[in-house]
Every structure is written in C-alpha cells, then in structure tokens.
Write a protein that binds this DNA or RNA. Structure first.
Lengths: 220, 220
DNA sequence: TCAAAAGTGTTCTCGATACACCCATGC
DNA sequence: GCATGGGTGTATCGAGAACACTTTTGA
C-alpha cells in the first residue's frame, strides 16, 4: 500500500457564536485555496479525537474550556480531490464576547460568517454546516446547551433572545420565563444590568444543573 | 512517519435483531483473540463509510437492504493495543427472522447475544454497545425506526411487543393502538394471522411514510 | 364451553399556548 | 413626565395516562 492509498484522519470543528443578533460560524481561508473552509487539522499520533478538536479550537480562538461535542464523521472517497480524508467533525459553542482571532499556521485569514449568509465553501463543507446547524437547533430545543452561547452572567431577556436567534422564531416572554425559572437551573447573582429602561436581574447557570427533556414519544 | 505511526480507519457495525422476546446483538470471535467483539473491518480505498458498513453487514449476515445508520466515532489512542485505530461505528436493525450466519474470513465464530447479558468484550466494545443501545432506544421513542425490527407483515400486538422489548417497559394496549393508527403510517394488508385465540389483522408499514415527532421543548 | 388473544372508549390531569398590563429607571 | 425595556397571572385547549370489558376463534 503506497502513501497515496493511505487514508488520513482529520478533525474539523464547527465553531459557533452569537454576534449582532445572529448565529455566526468561524471559517478560515488557507493560503493555497480560494474558498473558505471549516477549521480543522490532521489528528496527531497519540492524540484523541476530542483533544484534537479542543486543540484546533484553541489554535483558532485562543479559548479553552469550551463546550465541544462530536457531530458526525464524513468520509466519502471523493470529498477531497487531493487525497482520501475522513473527517470527524465536532462543533463548539462559545460564549458571546469579543474574540481575538489568532491566525493559525498556513492560514490566510479567519472570519465570522452569519450562518444564513454562507458563501460556497471548500470540499463538502456546506453540507457539513447544514448538518451541524440542524443538530445544534435540535439540541437547543431539548437540552440546555443554549447557555454555552452566553457569558457567565446574563439577563432573562438576553437568554430568550439567544434562543430566538438560534431557533429563528419568536418566543412568548411570560411562558419562557415561567418555564425556565421552574426548571430550577438558574440562580440570581444579585447583580443587575442597567441600561436603557428598567434594570434587569442577572442570572447565572446553576453549577451542576442539567436538564434534558424527555422527547415526546411517538407511541406512548 | 513510519507505518506504526499511521492511523487506520475501521468501520464497526452493531447489528441488532429481536429474538425470543429479547433484543440481541451479533458478536464475533476472531481466531487470534479470546474475547467477543463487534463485527467490523478496515475501510477500503475508494469505499465510503456507509458502504463499508453495508459490506460488513452483508459479510456477516448475508443480508442487504437493511437499515444502517452512523452512530459515533471512537478514537482514543489506546483503545487498541496493537495499533492506532479510529472506528466509525454504525448500527443496523434487521427484521426478526431466521438468519444463517456466515462465517466471515478470519472469524472463529459468530453468535447472537441478549443485550442484557453481554460478556466482557474486546477493546472498548462494551462502551460502544452501551452507547449504541442508549441511542437506539432514544431513536425508537421519537422516530419510526422500530418497524425495521419487524418482518414486512405484522400484527399490532407484535409491533407493541417489539417496542416493549426494546424500551424495556410495558405499554398500554389501547393507547398504543390508538396512537399508531392515528399516525397513519400503517395499512391493513387484508390478511390475518391465526394461532391461539382470535386471529389478528396483519399490517404493513406504509411505503414512504415517515414520522418524527417534534421533541417536547425545554423552553417553549 | 372454555381458554386465549384481539379489539375497543371514556375520563382525568397536566403541560402548552395565547394574551395585556404595571413597574423601575434614565433622560 | 415620558420613553424604554423589565417583570408578572390567568384561562383555554389538547395530548398523555389510566383503566375493563366484549369479541372471535380453536381446542
């Protein structure tokens, strides 16, 4: 078996963040290519898939301690023209904040794109992002990963807005607040956020809280 | 980079079937190992992940046209002592029936194991099966993959029993029947299954039917 | 005529949804 | 005092859950 026949294992990471009332994703452009792509890299010997994902995330954003989860593995033989690459794709949700993008090695540039206005990407990366967004939206509906997209302290309105942006629909304020307070996964920090209008209580995600609703069954 | 450093990509397939009122999984024992393992193999050059899964399934069971879905990719560096292997794991649900097991090459034996009575398996395969079963049960609750475990024609009681076995809990007969008939995914074949007691109507999964319930939202 | 499995409706409870006004602050 | 966003309660509807008897057949 010669080198050309060997299969490379890559890890790609779909990095999502809220910005300007939109869900955005980080894309990079390598010096040797003309299309934007999902950041990724070849897995190191002795490196687990998850740690490769964390490493790539750190290389691109400088952030550690971020929510990262495996999404799917893409391995069509012709997805990369140059050589056979099997990509294990992860997604990461990072808290809304100002990020200084680090230029990774061999990278021409990196930028955040609104997920509803994506250009044509390299390889099968459009397909991967479609898949990732569907999964993230689903997951947001029935687990509490949504908090990963917010800073440590937030107001209920900010939380609701985050949900509305990702799900792409309007939610009822009273119902939203009742439900989330009943779930008992937040606690008031005591602080208030001031600005225009009445100041808002700040909340924090309760340590160790975890909720995952049971799916409504098809055949109960 | 020498050969020892290279990473191999394998595809493993968790093959599930209903048998004797239990959910069972197909395991194999290779000549050179002393523990049972999930069937799998190294992916071929030019072969997609999904077709590798289908190929492995065919090699083990002789069956084609089976429901196959990607589960998760396992890639811890030490999961196989001999060499670095990244396993893309699929699961397959095959209809209850008598299967003649084909002895794959290099295989010492193959056997069906009740999922509640698994031995200690090779590599991290116990962990993989735990994960697979959780996913299959979840999926059964909110999609219609359950039909994949039944033959083409079945009675409502058989269908209910299949669900009860996989979910591990008793379901109410009247609620089950009302819900599944309302869903409009079955049609009566006109045939009846006779046996002890009153004969039962036979049903068939309606072609092209597809249901996936919306998850109950965490924060509506 | 009896055993065995198929088939069939109703009631209650609880969560999901829809909806409109008062409150605290800064300017 | 007014503009701005924060905060609160109630009524309706529908889905989920619990529950027991009649029907059809073969032995």
């Amino acid at each position: 078996m010669n080198d050309h026949d060997r299969i490379a294992v890559a890890v790609d990471v779909v990095i999502c963040m809220l910005q300007n009332e939109a869900l955005t994703v980080l894309l990079i452009k390598r010096s040797d290519q003309d299309r934007w792509a999902i950041p990724g890299g070849i897995i190191g010997v002795g490196e687990s898939l998850q740690s490769a994902a964390v490493r790539i995330l750190e290389e691109e954003t400088g952030m550690a301690d971020v929510y990262v989860e495996q999404l799917y593995t893409f391995g069509e033989p012709d997805r990369d023209q140059r050589k056979r690459v099997v990509s294990v794709v992860y997604y990461a949700l990072i808290p809304a904040q100002q990020i200084e993008l680090k230029a990774g090695s061999g990278t021409d540039g990196a930028a955040w794109f609104n997920v509803d206005e994506l250009p044509r990407l390299a390889f099968d990366h459009n397909e991967i992002l479609d898949y990732a967004l569907t999964r993230i939206r689903n997951k947001l509906e029935y687990t509490d990963v949504g908090f990963q997209l917010l800073p440590e302290e937030f107001t209920l309105t900010e939380l609701q807005t985050a949900y509305e942006i990702v799900l792409g629909e309007h939610l009822d304020k009273r119902n939203f607040r009742r439900k989330i307070l009943q779930a008992n996964i937040l606690h008031e920090t005591g602080g208030m956020r001031t600005g225009e209008g009445r100041p808002a209580k700040l909340y924090r995600y309760r340590d160790g809280a975890f909720v995952e609703v049971k799916a409504r069954r098809l055949f109960p």
